[in-house]
Amino acid sequence: MRTFNQSKPILEDPWEYKNSSEVQGTIFIGQHGIYDTGGYVATLPSSKTAALALFSLLSRENWLDKYTIVVFVEFDLFIPDSNLFCSMVLAVESPKTGGAEGRLTQQVFKPLKMFHKTSLSDSYAVTLFICWVCICVFPISQIVSLVRRIRIQRRLFLKVAWNYFDVTLAATTLSSAVVMVVCEVVMTNDLGELRKGTRQNLQRTAALYDLLNHIISMLVFLSIIRFLKLLRFNQRMTLLSKTLKEAGKDIISWLFMASVIILGFSHAGYLFFHSSIESFKTMPDTLRLFFTTSIGKFPKETFLQLTSTFAQMLLLTYAVLNIVVTMNVFIAIINKAFGKADGERKSAQNHFDVLDYLSTRLKERVNNSGSK
């Protein structure tokens, strides 16, 4: 069941089912299920008096009954001063166990306006357009570099780990450029339809901008990791990479052991306390609680809210087992690998002189060009 806020009066029957294409919403992931965009729609008028009259009518006619699973209140906000849009969805779920649980989601986004007529007078749009051009040029140069590498290395290309990383970086960069253009086109179309009254919300645009933010976040993270490759000339960073490489197999085994412990305690906590303690009401919440405890962020507020002695003992037992056993095993693995990597570093030749590296690469380029 859905409700929408729109300036025009009610034109549709709230008791008539609307399919996904008519509602024009997006799939919502709640605490107790995944909900489709179809449902029964009651469009709220702009007048407060008319809206209260509509609520009274729906209440008298039992629009919400025992068969209602979830109710959505959806509306969009616009701030003219900063040119920001906000798509908000308030969901109230009715689980089979009874009661009601509310959840508010909001997505704030700003139009790119890269292809708008007035974009030349907007410094934000001009700066964004320049960055967009750089984003489009960067994957092209990456693809050219990858093609040259494939031609030179051939089968050896599949054996170098950094090549896979560069392919992922190029694909992420190209995806961000494509999604950015799609966001601009969809935003322009949705605003035009919203002014004409043929569209009821901006949820599709908000979902695309949220996807764009996630892709750009991944792109920034991968770019930072790629930049860290330059630190291979630093002895400490090289020692760190050798230590992790040496302890790779042992760390995988340790991760398996830690995962078994976290999943075991999480399942026990969820099965015993999901109906009585809020922190254990869903499996993701339980996993989040035990994971934050494992990294040293002990939830004091949650521990004080635990009225069950068994729940307190379960959380304390996990904390002690995680610190005394799991962390000590991890430290022992790192110490062993560090000692071996440090011994190899001391016996190896000095490969950390940047000037020697640059001069060697320059000589190789000159010799290759001379041979041609």
Rank of each mutant, 00 (worst) to 15 (best):
K18E: 08
A161E: 14
S217E: 10
R288Q: 10
D76C: 07
G102F: 05
D210S: 04
K249R: 15
P139G: 00
S94P: 01
I331M: 14
L244G: 07
T105W: 03
S176P: 09
N322Y: 01
I69Q: 05
E193Y: 06
Q203P: 00
V324E: 12
L244R: 04
F273S: 04
L90R: 04
R204C: 00
G339K: 08
T3P: 09
P95G: 04
L321C: 03
A341S: 15
T168L: 14
L321D: 01
L271S: 12
L211C: 08
Y40N: 07
S308Q: 11
E184D: 14
Q312S: 03
Q31W: 06
V179Y: 09
C86F: 07
V144A: 04
S56A: 14
F227L: 14
A247M: 08
K117D: 07
F273M: 06
D250E: 15
G99S: 01
L44P: 01
H351R: 13
L64P: 06
Q235Y: 04
R204F: 06
G102V: 03
L362Y: 02
V181W: 10
P14M: 08
L90M: 14
S253W: 15
L362I: 05
L287V: 07
W63I: 04
V70Y: 07
S56Y: 12
L240W: 13
V366H: 06
S359W: 10
V178R: 12
T205E: 02
D122W: 03
R236L: 13
C131P: 09
V137S: 07
F256E: 13
Q235R: 14
L174P: 10
L208V: 01
H267K: 08
T293K: 06
S275W: 09
W15P: 11
N189L: 13
I225P: 02
D190G: 02
L11E: 12
G192I: 06
V181P: 00
C136Q: 10
K117H: 08
Q305F: 00
S241M: 13
I334N: 07
L174V: 06
F78E: 01
A171V: 15
Q203I: 04
C183G: 03
W132D: 01
C131I: 09
V73F: 15
G39D: 07
K159F: 13
A247F: 08
L239C: 08
M327A: 09
T172R: 05
D190A: 13
M180W: 11
S59G: 12
V137P: 12
D250K: 12
M257W: 13
I130E: 08
N328I: 03
L263P: 00
S119N: 13
P284M: 10
V137T: 10
V178P: 08
V92E: 02
E12H: 09
T118E: 13
R2A: 14
I130M: 14
T302K: 07
N62Y: 07
F291I: 13
F273V: 02
D356H: 14
G269N: 06
I333N: 02
S371G: 00
Y124I: 08
